[in-house]
Simulated scan of single mutants.
Amino acid sequence: MTAPPLQTFGPEIWTADGPQTEVVGFRYPTRMAVIRLGDGGLFVWSPVALSDGLKAQVDALGEVRHVIAPNALHHLFLEDWRRAYPAARLHAALGLAAKRGDLAFDGELTDAPPAAWAADLDQTPVRGCAITTEVVFFHRASRTVLFTDLIQQFPPGWFSGWRALVARLDLMTQPEPAVPRKFRVSFTDRRAARADLDRILSWPAEQVLMAHGAPVLADGRAFIERAFRWLKG
């Protein structure tokens, strides 16, 4: 497997695009982020498939201490990272530990960042969604908000045939990254979601990184407000 190159995304944050995965017949690109914390340890968000080349690039940045599964959908490659970095702590979003009983998680992500990364990142779960409770992060040094699946965008021509129609109806191919329709209708507790969104909007975001979509490199807070306008209405 060819190593996806780590790319600098901002101060102390790098990204790598991994191989595609398939979910119910739909191809998804994969993307991870590596953040170097103030103590020199590495925080690995939504890890992609691990190759020898990618491992070498990550190891050159520092010691992997935290591996993050930010929702219950992004777990395909956790076992490989656990095996490669047995001393790292594996952190799971709500619901994933029950789904992956074969993995020993070290902690569940809450609305308060643990001391290990509280100086570098803030976080909040976005509650009220029946599909998954996604934990959204804010990296202070790069002023980057990290979404996993709640915001997505696929380029023109990515899907074909009936899949292209489904993707269009699901708002996955909008001109600007958007919250897919399936997520919008699955919010059964919008009051809770709005409270979590208010916290996200309190962050001085400039950039937005997502697992499936082109990053937003400027005016991140305004972009997030547009993407969730439907929730505030």
Rank of each mutant, 00 (worst) to 15 (best):
L121M: 14
V136L: 06
D111V: 04
G95L: 02
A130L: 14
A97P: 02
R184D: 14
P204T: 04
C129Q: 06
D149Y: 00
D106M: 15
R163Q: 15
P175Y: 13
T148A: 15
Q152I: 01
A112I: 11
C129K: 06
F159C: 12
L169F: 14
P125Y: 05
D111Q: 09
L90V: 00
T124H: 10
C129F: 06
D198T: 12
P180G: 04
V126Y: 02
A112S: 05
I151L: 09
A98C: 02
Q152K: 04
S142M: 05
F138V: 14
G95V: 01
T133S: 11
F154Q: 03
T132F: 12
L201R: 07
L171E: 07
G128Q: 01
D149A: 02
G101Y: 00
H139D: 05
G157H: 10
P113H: 15
L109F: 08
E176D: 07
A115W: 04
T188D: 07
L165Y: 09
A167N: 03
A93I: 00
G128L: 01
S202C: 11
G107R: 03
L165K: 13
A119K: 15
G161A: 15
A141I: 00
A178W: 07
L165F: 15
K182M: 14
V126A: 03
F138Q: 05
S186N: 15
A195L: 13
L201Q: 13
I131P: 01
A115Y: 04
A130T: 15
C129Y: 07
T148M: 12
P155S: 10
G128D: 01
D120G: 06
A164P: 11
P114R: 08
G161Y: 08
T173Y: 03
F147S: 05
L150N: 09
I200P: 07
A115N: 14
L171R: 10
L201G: 12
T132M: 10
